[in-house]
Design a binder for these strands. Sequence first.
DNA 1: TTGAAAGCGCTAACAC
DNA 2: GTGTTAGCGCTTTCAA
Lengths: 335, 335
Amino acid sequence: MTTARDVAAAVGLSVSTVGRALSDDPRISDATKARVIAAAETMGYVANRAARMMRGASSDVIAVIVPDLSNGFYATIAHALSGALTSNNWQLMLGESADDPRIERRHARGFVSAQVAGAIVVPTARPAPETVQLLTSLPHVQLLRRVGQLKPYWFGIDDTGAIRQATEHLITSGHRRIGFVGGTPDLPTGAARQRGYREALADAGIPAPDELVLLGPPLSMDHGRAAVARLLALQDPPTALVTASVQATRGVLEELLRHEVAVPQDLSVVGFGDEPGWSWWGPGLTTIALPIQQLAATCALWLLDRLAAGPDAHTAAYSSVSSGELVLRGSTRGI
Amino acid sequence: MTTARDVAAAVGLSVSTVGRALSDDPRISDATKARVIAAAETMGYVANRAARMMRGASSDVIAVIVPDLSNGFYATIAHALSGALTSNNWQLMLGESADDPRIERRHARGFVSAQVAGAIVVPTARPAPETVQLLTSLPHVQLLRRVGQLKPYWFGIDDTGAIRQATEHLITSGHRRIGFVGGTPDLPTGAARQRGYREALADAGIPAPDELVLLGPPLSMDHGRAAVARLLALQDPPTALVTASVQATRGVLEELLRHEVAVPQDLSVVGFGDEPGWSWWGPGLTTIALPIQQLAATCALWLLDRLAAGPDAHTAAYSSVSSGELVLRGSTRGI
DNA sequence: TTGAAAGCGCTAACAC
DNA sequence: GTGTTAGCGCTTTCAA
């Protein structure tokens, strides 16, 4: 590896002159610059980034943590983030947490040790204290999920509003026994979505019996599957179903097909998110479409903007909430 | 950022002792080690990678280039790579090329400047010369696609065999007019898949008229859509269809629904890959399932192994070919 | 068993 | 306009 010192020796100048010439410092004469640049080129000189970073140069890498890329929802997020970052000349370092705080911590360590300039995180329900400490040591934003320990910068969707909308649609269609398949309230998003369901029912004066509210782990299709089986086995099964996560929806859809449930005749279903294929599932899935691409892109740009502003620029707590949109297809009908 | 010096000050020892304690040097007493480790933990100490690299340590980052994460196929690949890398304590730096050599080059530059230890690449059809030069300067493997300019290490699928299998299945079922919707032969994979189609037909003594062979850009759903429209408009439309890329399949499936084509009564269809939802598309999609998870994981492990072997270990050209598997569902039938 | 000190390649403050 | 020097955080001699 050729170093600046080698180049300096070759042209008979000092290392600092070489450094300045290559960074186009105005104090260096054009003749010298030309000589240095030519030498550097022929010698195949490439600046050592590690050394630069030791001098405090900030990296051009942004870290991203998502729960699971094999989940189309998060893959789309990663895609949008990647697009926004690279088109602004940033690199992306990626980690999947699998919703496991220990894996999340491992990534956080890796990121800090790799000296990333900032991080965009979809946090797990309870990040390890060390994770919090590590992330807090660098500029970061929370995406989709929000935990109190991390900095109060958050880009997410209106979870309560989305599920409320879905539930209200079913209520308006005349349904009274409406099942809810969602995530545990550990995750703020899980709690918020359940709230949307309960609020909509309460507003309409409809009870929400426990047997109709099925909660499970966040990224699990199995929970969706099991929930369908449980609901169908009830003495008085629901006439409609609201799902409150992408994976839950997936599981529900598969299981409904397996049980050959007549949708929407016997059961109306509203999904969460809008994944490829859902438009052709059975009669077409009525669902809450989420503007996750814009959300992710905006989030990335916000972070880059903050980085550009410098570490001193004190930023007040900030949150941006996007709304979902009900897409009507064939899986719901009035009764 | 907490440094080793900070930790040393906290425990009243020297930097070198701290360094040794953390690297489990046998010369340090267990008591001291414990003290240092405890302090490092509470203080959130993470070794500065840049400094380590200046001392000759290689980075723990592997670069990955895929065409497009919003494509479930590549998202799965990224997921598998990420799993294999992080479980071996490597970080992943990710770039999406969008199949554009210029974007690919930008990523290659970023990777080299970020001093990644190696790269896993799904290359574009014609990488820029600079990209080739940059990638060649570091250990790398090609995944799925293979271009001659890069090093001859490749993990991919038997494209020809996969499509041949799909085509033969249709021939065996009695079909004679079989359409082919695939990618341009620019990409070796596109060429190989088309070969599989032609070979199967040739073996059965069936002609492959140009009007039935529709080629388009690799990552385009639109091509799949347009192809369906074109084929249906033919005077003598095909009775069966082979698709030769995931995105083409997606487009075809959507368009068939839009045109309300009776599958498999009027048209048999074999897809490429097996994405979520394809099992419930119409009568269930008969398709070629690809072992991309294992493929990606194996590829990552191979690269890590080579890195562990050191830069001197000369490796002979290597390629690993995985086969697809025909999954029979409802979208094909005999005539 | 621990400490002191050198030095990796680079940049920036301070000479001249 | 160019050179000298210090020091980023770490590992690794060399001392003690």
